[in-house]
């Protein structure tokens, strides 16, 4: 288990428990009671630390190297998954995975950002930062879903769209813009779940949805806290302040009326129990789908349009 800075007290306690276990194994003294006592304390410590996380700490949990990614959810929530590759024009972008699967026996289309677990896979997945071909693959798959009347589920987890030379040459801006335009009019239900980092336009490009769900310790923002700090404060060290003032957490975004459901995470974060968080996600997904399946196409598209049309704060 990797521990974040603010989890150090938990890490120390867990190390102590491990040590005691080791001693316990080769001595006659019964220290089970002591271990149980320390384990309870550890749980309490986690509870108390996680009950008052700052926005910056939450963004660290959202980026935790062991956080479950799109494929971890696909494996646990859906059956019969067939991955579909390529944008038919340039390449297949492994930073976005797409495919057909079943939820409770019914076909669904899944589109999600994918990060890598080890160095090799991280590079292969480009740290979850899609290039235009990734967004164009997603677009192709959405149109495919629409043609066969299959609901779309997207999973958002990206630091942002890739800022590279080739990406710019191939029209990163246009690829994102096109997705926003097409998604706003899709004839099938679209549900987006922010499972980790919702990084700006690179996230929104698969996030124009009828329902937006966010994991408890996920974030969604116009720019990373570091990026915001380096532009507005001229110093990336102010990232914690930037995270606070931008309001990137699920709670804050719900207050703004943007998020429909917050998905509770296991104590200490989703990475501590993959199966448990997958079941939570599945249940909230079912509820959201149920709300949408009864709607006519006209209703669905009109409501989605209105959802974005009316979003903004100004005086008039």
């Amino acid at each position: 288990m990797n521990f974040l800075d603010f989890e150090q007290p938990i890490a120390e306690l867990d190390a102590k428990i491990e040590e005691l276990r080791y001693v316990g194994n080769d001595s006659d003294i019964n220290i089970n009671e002591e271990i149980t006592r320390l384990q309870n304390r550890s749980q309490e410590l986690i509870r108390s630390i996680f009950s008052s996380l700052t926005a910056w700490q939450i963004s660290q949990v959202a980026r935790h190297p062991q956080r479950p990614y799109t494929l971890d959810y696909i494996q646990r929530i859906f059956t019969d998954f067939d991955e579909l590759h390529g944008d038919r024009n340039f390449a297949d972008d492994p930073a976005i995975v797409c495919g057909l699967a079943r939820l409770d026996g019914n076909p669904v289309m899944i589109i999600g950002h994918q990060k890598g677990r080890d160095t090799k896979e991280r590079i292969y997945r480009n740290y979850g930062m899609p290039k235009p071909e990734g967004y164009r693959k997603a677009l192709r798959i959405m149109k495919l879903a629409e043609r066969f009347r299959i609901p779309i589920i997207t999973m958002i987890d990206t630091p942002g769209a890739y800022p590279g030379i080739g990406a710019e040459e191939r029209g990163q801006s246009e690829a994102i813009a096109k997705n926003l335009l097409v998604m706003s009019q899709l004839n099938v239900p679209v549900i987006s779940i922010v499972i980790g980092e919702g990084g700006s336009g690179g996230a929104l490009a698969i996030g124009v949805a009828d329902r937006l769900l966010m994991l408890q310790y996920s974030t969604y923002s116009v720019i990373s806290p570091e990026g915001c700090a380096s532009i507005l404060w001229k110093s990336a060290d102010k990232a914690a302040d930037a995270a606070e003032v931008m309001g990137i957490t699920a709670d804050r975004l719900r207050e703004l009326g943007l998020v429909d459901r917050i998905i509770d995470e296991p104590l200490g974060g989703a990475h501590r129990d993959y199966d448990m968080i997958a079941m939570e996600v599945r249940d909230r997904l079912r509820e959201s789908l149920a709300e949408l399946t009864g709607k006519s196409v006209a209703e669905l598209v009109e409501e989605r349009h209105k959802r974005f049309r009316d979003f903004g704060f100004y005086t008039s």
Binding site: L180, G201, L204, V208, S221, V222, G247, I248, F308
Partner: peptide
């Protein structure tokens, strides 16, 4: 912040 991101959509 996020409000401006949503203006894109």
């Amino acid at each position: 912040a996020i409000v401006s991101l949503m203006q894109m959509a």
